[in-house]
């Protein structure tokens, strides 16, 4: 059994006025075959957690650990974390001018596998993955994310998820800004990724809408840098109906 274990995770973000604590002790275990949804109000630290686990330079893990399959990621470099099996679908994918999608994907695949993918099958795989995300094959010649619409960037992230085949994926608000058709396409991609039962997903979202298409095994409510409540799919419905107020107030009261 492969798992991603987040233990007592504390994270600071660098700001102009010095470091600011965002995560205040997060505990979470995701086993392969599971989909966990993290929901919470803006500013609760959801994205910070995603970036910190991936190793973004702006975030510092001050204590606690994140282990993937027993390997402590917190001491690994960004690329080493990816090679350990982690993938982050970003909320704001970065434009890399002059680097073609083809070149980028081949370089990433080569780095992850330790050898170049087979030319004949790889091109087909890339085209199929792009097509699956309703990105036409002209995208492979374009610069990474440059000039892509918001929705195209998100679909490009999921195409990468399918091609790079990580063990664990963190999807950081992949659903925001997507229209309903794009949302379905993205959800189908994620469901294909999890269908083998040997991968895990941490799905960060602001809305329960995507959970109609990707069924979570667990739902966590994230408030003020901590997990405030946990439950099954029904918790998402409750949040949809009642909002986060109850949890936000409780978090305030406990300070």
């Amino acid at each position: 059994m492969v798992n991603l274990v987040i233990s007592d995770l504390h994270v600071d973000v660098e700001t102009e006025s010095g470091p600011k604590q965002i995560l205040k002790g997060v505990n979470l275990t995701i086993n392969s075959g599971e989909v966990h949804a993290i929901m919470g109000p803006n500013g609760s630290g959801k994205s910070t957690m995603a970036y910190a686990i991936a190793g973004h330079p702006k975030y510092t893990i001050t204590s606690g650990s994140v282990t993937l399959n027993g390997i402590d990621l917190t001491h690994l470099k960004v690329d080493e974390r990816a090679r350990a099996g982690l993938f982050l679908a970003m909320q704001y994918p970065v434009e890399v001018p002059g680097v073609s999608v083809t070149n980028f994907l081949r370089t990433a695949k080569t780095a992850l596998d330790g050898q170049a993918p087979k030319v004949r099958t790889w091109v087909k795989e890339v085209n199929a993955a792009l097509e699956g995300m309703q990105l036409d094959s002209s995208f492979s010649a374009r610069s990474v994310n440059e000039g892509f619409s918001g929705g195209e960037k998100k679909r490009h992230e999921i195409a990468q998820l399918e091609l790079l085949k990580p063990k664990f994926a963190i999807l950081d608000e992949t659903d925001s800004g997507l229209d309903i058709d794009a949302l379905r396409v993205v959800a189908e991609g994620v469901n294909r990724f999890t269908s083998g039962g040997d991968t895990g997903v941490l799905l960060i979202t602001h809305y329960s809408r995507i959970l109609r298409y990707i069924e979570p095994d667990f739902v966590h409510v994230f408030v003020d840098g901590r997990i405030a409540a946990e439950g099954g799919k029904e918790l998402a419905d409750e949040l949809e109906a009642e909002g986060y107020d109850k949890y936000v107030q409780a978090a305030r009261a406990s300070v």
Binding site: A54, F87, T107
Partner: peptide
């Protein structure tokens, strides 16, 4: 941010720099 993005896909830092420099001039 460009380096972070490339590295988050498993591309080692020196390779990521090469890609960025190539991209910068290829344009």
């Amino acid at each position: 941010l460009q380096l972070f993005y490339l590295r988050s896909r498993g591309i080692p830092e020196d390779e990521a720099r090469r890609l960025v420099v190539h991209g910068f001039f290829n344009d």
